[in-house]
């Protein structure tokens, strides 16, 4: 298991003031992040406003050292043993980086395999199975520069698997890819986690992607953890009120008014908005049985009755707006 506690990263950067003048500035990219990743789990790292996601991934991959905090990798101090960590992890980034364009797909995987010290027989078999896994077995001997974006991304996945890592860090893996390739990659990521038991940390700008793939999500803002949990936990954290969609045959303003009068006795703050032939009801209480009883009492035929589950995207946007408002009020 990967476990980090109170991770912090301060960059000392040089800023140019004018052509001849520059000054040094300290930037706290990550202030305080604690998280866990277990084998077979897909963990999402979502960020608002320059959250420090990539910096966090770089610290977890030991590419950069944290300024403070602890990092335990399968019970071993990862900060003091980066080579141990590097043998058991890999990283796949979005875009077209991390592979040599002038080498073929096979040559790329062979070279990285050599860097990881994999013996030649094992490497040969692994390359063949990885190329098959990402559907590039027919393109193995073509230079990468002739590949499409999607093919390059698939090769990156194969490269990220060359050392058979226990944990994989995916940094915006589907950026710039079309819907079909994205879908294929999602299936691949799911397989890696659920079939091959890899622990995966995923960062993405696409909230729907995180929502679809991740078992557990960490939401960070300006280098600090805002909230963590499953998708349901996160939406419940943001939305402390429930929403229902209620529709009956012959829905009109009269029924809406009667419904309002009925529900107000249960929740004085209940809100009802009519959308076409539906009523969207917002309340802090569980109202589904009350709505069913209202229909029975009024002899109405129910067309629709369900609780509207807010999407992660809506929750994150709302949370982001809340954070901005709080920041403004403090200022």
């Amino acid at each position: 298991m990967i476990e980090v506690q109170n991770l912090q990263k301060i960059y000392n950067v040089k800023r140019r003031q004018s052509f001849f003048k520059s000054y040094k500035e300290s930037i706290e990219a990550v202030k305080d992040i604690s998280m866990k990743i277990e084998a077979g789990q897909i963990v999402g790292l979502l960020g608002i406003n320059g959250a420090g996601k990539t910096t966090t991934i770089k610290m977890l991959t030991t590419l950069i050292e944290p300024t403070s905090g602890t990092y335990s990798f399968d019970g071993i101090n990862a900060i003091e043993n980066p080579s141990f960590v590097k043998n058991k992890i890999n990283m796949i980034a979005g875009g077209e980086r991390m592979i040599y364009w002038r080498l073929t797909a096979y040559e790329n995987l062979w070279y990285y395999g050599q860097l990881y010290g994999i013996d030649n027989n094992t490497l040969k078999n692994r390359i063949e199975s990885l190329l098959q896994m990402v559907g590039l077995e027919d393109k193995a001997n073509l230079p990468v520069e002739t590949f499409s974006k999607g093919m390059k991304q698939r090769l990156q996945i194969a490269r990220g698997m060359i050392n058979d890592p226990k944990y994989i860090f995916l940094d915006e893996p589907t950026i710039g890819l079309d819907a079909v390739v994205t879908k294929e990659l999602h299936d691949e990521i799911r397989k890696l986690s659920k079939v091959r038991e890899k622990g995966i940390l995923l960062t993405s700008h696409y909230l729907a992607e995180v929502e679809e793939l991740c078992d557990y999500i960490y939401l960070v803002n300006k280098g600090e953890l805002v909230v963590e949990g499953t998708k349901k936990d996160l939406t419940e954290y943001v939305y402390n009120r429930k929403q229902y969609c209620f529709s009956v045959q012959g829905m009109d303003e009269n029924i809406i008014m009667r419904l309002h009068n009925y529900l107000i006795s249960l929740d004085i703050d209940v809100e009802i908005v009519q959308q076409d032939d539906r009523a969207i009801i917002t309340s802090k209480f569980e109202l589904s049985s009350a709505l069913a009883q209202f229909a029975i009492k009024e002899n109405l035929i129910i067309k629709e009755l369900y609780e509207i589950e807010p999407s992660l995207e809506q929750a994150v946007i709302k949370l982001s707006q809340q954070i901005c408002r709080e920041a403004e009020s403090i200022a």
């Binding site: 590419l63 590097k86 980086r97 990285y112 860097l115």
Partner: peptide, 10 residues
């Protein structure tokens, strides 16, 4: 763009 993947290898 290959420096990171290179540095990731032990």
């Amino acid at each position: 763009g290959t420096l990171e993947s290179l540095m990731l290898a032990p």
